[in-house]
Design a binder for these strands. Structure first.
Length: 153
DNA sequence: GCCAACGTTGGC
DNA sequence: GCCAACGTTGGC
């Protein structure tokens, strides 16, 4: 089983929203690398670290789980959506997504705190200039993160 | 709101 | 295929 870190702006979809809905499609990814992770590498059952970005307290706010294989992101075909992509054709959708289900809220592990911890220094999230919204987390990184999130690895 | 870093676009 | 211009991300 793989672990992923997925960023979401809490104004759009927070861990509380996911808890309420119990399951959400991960809409709006418009970056090829992030899409490829969902399309090619994510499997149902994979662990997701739910990260809040572009907010007062950026950090990991909970745990989720991939619960579908990849399929076409419907928002790319919706002219009313901010994620509409006029160049994406129905017969060859450009953007894909997976569904994610709620597992648990965690005490917020802030970006600031993560930057202070040497055992987390390898996280792709923390690399200079990194802004990919979906990044893989290694087993070693997950083992270092779990106790900080108050969960069993 | 600023701006560094990165990704995409399109002319050549 | 290069690369300048432009757009976006996201922390601060």
């Amino acid at each position: 089983m793989n672990t992923w870190l997925m960023k979401s702006e809490p104004d759009e979809a927070s861990i509380d929203d996911l808890q309420r809905e119990s399951r959400l499609p991960w809409t709006g990814v418009r970056n090829y690398q992030a899409r490829n992770f969902m399309r090619d590498s994510m499997k149902p059952g994979d662990r997701v670290l739910f990260y809040h970005s572009s907010c007062a307290e950026p950090g990991i706010a909970g745990i989720a789980e991939v619960c579908s294989t990849a399929y076409a992101d419907p928002t790319q075909f919706d002219p009313a959506s901010p994620y509409f992509d006029s160049k994406s054709l129905t017969e060859s959708p450009r953007w894909q997504l997976v569904d994610v289900r709620f597992v648990a809220k965690t005490p917020l592990l802030s970006l600031k705190r993560m930057r202070e911890l040497p055992q987390l220094a390898s996280l792709q999230l923390l690399q200079r200039g990194s802004r990919l919204s979906i990044t893989p987390v290694t087993t070693a990184e997950w083992l270092a993160l779990a106790p900080l999130l108050g969960v069993e690895p």
